[in-house]
């Protein structure tokens, strides 16, 4: 109820936009800013849900940049929990991201990181929460998914291939690899659509 109320109020203030409804079960989606990716995922990033980006090198941030640009215009945080390196603020700013919205949370990792991510997802004060967790139990993932729904927040998990053997409650799961300066994206899982789509996305970063 409380989550609904806060969502309604956000909608009322014009800070979120609803999907066009075509996807039905996929609910609201946030355009990724890449036509190819939007087509393959049924509209882009699912709002209020978890997304898993799977790659050997923790790649995928550049895929999120257009979204970060847009979400940065809202008065909500773009939260980074235990990123592998420093996000290079000038490069983000040069691509249009409002760096004053960036909130970086550094924890001892493991459970503490997940706790922080959950707090952030649930708070309603974050537009997106990114984290780089190791192995995760399904129960833990489900808690995060619930928190994302409650806080109407996009949760992005950057994961290594070996960590994603188990099934996941995430709304979208993508496998990433680079191919000649482009990012090759394979859709492992999406809600209400066909898995297995492959696209190449021209993004740099």
């Amino acid at each position: 109820m409380a989550a609904e109320a806060s969502l309604e109020s956000l909608l009322h203030r014009g800070l979120l936009w609803r999907g066009n409804g075509r996807e039905g079960a996929a609910g609201r989606a946030l355009s990724s800013g890449f036509r190819e990716l939007d087509e393959a995922t049924g509209g882009g990033w699912p709002s209020g849900a978890l997304v898993e980006l799977v790659s050997p090198g923790g790649q995928g941030l550049s895929l999120l940049v257009p979204l970060l640009v847009r979400l940065g215009r809202e008065p909500r945080w773009l939260a980074w929990v235990d990123p592998p390196w420093h996000p290079h603020a000038p490069a983000l700013a040069a691509r249009g991201v409002a760096v004053s919205r960036i909130l970086q949370v550094r924890t001892a990792g493991g459970a503490e990181g997940l706790w922080a991510a959950e707090q952030l997802l649930r708070s309603g004060n974050c537009a997106v929460v990114m984290l780089w967790p190791g192995r995760l139990g399904t129960a833990r993932l489900r808690r995060l998914q619930l928190a994302a729904e409650e806080g109407d927040c996009l949760g992005v998990l950057f994961r290594s291939p070996e960590a994603v053997a188990a099934p996941s409650p995430a709304a979208l799961r993508l496998r990433l690899g680079s191919r000649g300066g482009k990012l090759a994206v394979e859709v492992l899982k999406r809600r209400g659509g066909w898995n297995g789509g492959r696209v190449e996305v021209p993004c740099t970063g």
């Binding site: 550049s62 592998p84 996000p87 290079h88 000038p90 490069a91 040069a94």
Partner: peptide
């Protein structure tokens, strides 16, 4: 913003 940073990586 520094336009040169467009050519810089997202991770430092």
């Amino acid at each position: 913003p520094d336009p040169s940073a467009r050519q810089q990586p997202l991770w430092l």
